[in-house]
């Protein structure tokens, strides 16, 4: 190859990657202020939800990740104005993109570390996977509805969440090829927890399941597999609510 051509090719590659940087960083810079306000809301909620928040509030790394994900690109166009309000939004097919506060709690609860592999059942808009992406080594996500799964996969690829892999299929059997998982997030409602998912959870791993209707999370269920393989579950309320008047304030 002639030097000039080489030079041109190099130039083109540089330009292309620069363009890629511009196209991916632009959305991340959009609506920064609203995202910062959203993080503040999450923090203030977290201060009053002692049950679901362990230790000193939500892990700053989780909040940092959420501060970088352009949530408005994960919601339908007509909902973009409300994207940073602390509320769930409809995304079609009877599904919702979860409330930011709930996303923060769930992400915080599974304690993701940089070497961890995480499985998500129910990709939906892809927002939860995007938040997990910078925190984990690899995120696998399964969506049952092809249109949602394909859309989310394309969106995540476009925004360069490169360590997220989405497939369309039945989440019941998990993703045995990549098991065990250090964390599992089950956002798709089920009458029971699929045994294969419990099986694919690593020892010391954590699974979180939000329980409730599409617009109202009742509680979060945390499934922990101890080092000895025993399973315990915990029900965590996203809110400090004591059902007994004059009862113990905590």
């Amino acid at each position: 190859m002639r030097p000039l051509a080489q030079c041109q090719a190099l130039m083109a590659a540089v330009l292309a990657s620069a363009a890629a940087v511009v196209s991916t960083s632009a959305p991340a810079q959009d609506r920064l202020g609203e995202r910062a306000a959203m993080i503040e809301t999450i923090k203030s909620h977290a201060r009053s939800a002692p049950s679901a928040v362990e230790g000193q509030g939500i892990d700053p790394a989780v909040l940092e990740a959420m501060g970088k994900v352009p949530r408005h690109l994960f919601v339908p166009e007509e909902q973009r104005g409300e994207a940073y309000q602390d509320r769930p939004l409809p995304i079609g097919y009877g599904q919702t993109i979860s409330q930011p506060f709930i996303v923060a709690l769930m992400t915080d609860l599974i304690n993701v570390g940089p070497r961890d592999v995480v499985l998500e059942i129910g990709t939906g808009s892809g927002y939860q996977a995007a938040v997990l992406s910078p925190l984990a080594a690899k995120v696998y996500s399964i969506e049952i509805i092809p249109e949602l799964g394909e859309r989310a996969a394309a969106r995540l690829a476009e925004l360069r969440f490169d360590n997220v892999e989405v497939k369309v299929g039945d989440g019941y059997y998990g993703w045995a090829a990549h098991a065990p998982f250090d964390g599992i997030v089950v956002t798709a409602a089920a009458s029971h927890i699929p045994p294969p998912l419990v099986e694919q959870l690593a020892k010391g791993g954590r699974m979180v399941v939000p329980v409730g209707g599409p617009f109202a999370t009742q509680f979060l269920m945390l499934v922990e597999k101890r080092r000895d393989g025993s399973i315990t579950t915990r029900q965590l309320l996203p809110v400090a609510f004591v059902p007994l008047r004059g009862g113990r304030a905590r």
Binding site: H45, F101, G213, F215, A216, T217, Q218, F219, V239, F241
Partner: peptide, 9 residues
């Protein structure tokens, strides 16, 4: 508390 799960109750 409605935005924090109060609505579900």
């Amino acid at each position: 508390l409605r935005t924090q799960g109060g609505a579900a109750m």
